[in-house]
């Protein structure tokens, strides 16, 4: 295990895409220390910013990087990683695990926006809250998250799963506006409330909301389901099952808890 211990508190954005098991593997501590890192507009080396400890006591198969302390200014931690583990003790900055295809990232604190952006595989687990655009594509692209799993124990911001194509995003807390906007496949599972516009412009895929949520007028009620399956697991309902977004000719499935959303009861008249 490589342990990165920040030498000081950071205040400028740090380009940290070199912090990845794929890049660290097979490098000596010295080589790791020499890896390029931009801090603001100054080019430096990883060793300028971190004390590097090589805790190779137990040669486990899985390569692990641990960042001790606050990593909230570090952008692109674990970008493009395909294996191993990253553990962040505190908060993590934006673009955590961007474009990753395998391995796991665990964050004890919060994570910034664009966590799991363009992700294709692996797992990101955030114990705190997450920002906006979780699993989203880059600006102008429609290639959002295409596999893997993101678990957020706290709340998440806007546009979670934007242009999502596959995989699972699970939010144990609440979610902001536009969860699953433009999504074409995959699953978003919200255990708390949604601020609204969930599934806006969705083409396909599945969104499950266990808490309270407004529903877009461009969704049509389809049925009431006693339970719904998420990632092989059965979630107890009952759920209203909506189809949309009609404006985009969508066939997305939006499951919304019946008990937590009495304001949706007028829809039931269409089911008789």
């Amino acid at each position: 295990m490589i342990i990165l211990d920040p030498k000081r508190a950071f205040r400028f954005p740090i380009e940290a895409k070199n912090i990845s098991p794929d890049i660290f593997a097979k490098k000596s501590s010295k080589e790791i220390a020499a890896l390029q890192m931009w801090e603001g507009n100054r080019k430096g080396a990883l060793g300028d910013l971190f004390n590097i400890k090589n805790d190779s006591g137990s040669p486990s198969e899985e390569f692990t990087i641990k960042i001790e302390g606050d990593a909230s200014k570090l952008r692109n931690i674990g970008a493009r990683m395909s294996m191993g583990h990253i553990v962040v003790d505190g908060d993590a900055g934006m673009h955590l695990g961007e474009d990753m295809s395998g391995g796991t990232i665990t964050v004890a604190g919060n994570a910034g926006s664009w966590a799991g952006s363009k992700m294709k595989g692996g797992t990101i687990e955030i114990k705190g809250n997450a920002g906006d655009y979780i699993g989203a594509p880059y600006r102008g692209s429609t290639k959002g998250m295409n596999g893997g799993k993101i678990i957020i124990h706290g709340n998440a911001g806007y546009e979670v799963g934007c242009f999502m194509r596959n995989g699972l995003i699970q939010i144990l807390g609440d979610v902001g506006l536009f969860a699953g906007i433009h999504m074409s496949n995959g699953t978003i599972f919200v255990q708390g409330n949604s601020e609204g516009r969930a599934g806006a412009q969705m083409i396909n895929g599945k969104i499950v909301i266990c808490g309270h949520t407004p529903v877009m007028p461009t969704f049509t009620i389809d049925s009431i389901k006693p339970k719904v399956k998420v990632d092989g697991e059965k979630i107890e309902g009952p759920f209203y099952r909506f189809i949309g977004d009609l404006a985009d000719n969508g066939n997305g499935k939006l499951f919304v808890s019946k008990t937590k959303n009495p304001h949706l009861s007028p829809y039931e008249k269409y089911l008789e």
Binding site: A200, P217, L246, A247, Y267
Partner: peptide, 22 residues
């Protein structure tokens, strides 16, 4: 506005909505 715009998109494509007003 967002709801209104999306609803209009359904209507200009000759679709129907479940709601009475937007």
């Amino acid at each position: 506005d967002y709801e209104l715009l999306q609803a209009l998109r359904v209507l200009v494509n000759d679709g129907e909505l479940d709601v009475d007003e937007v």
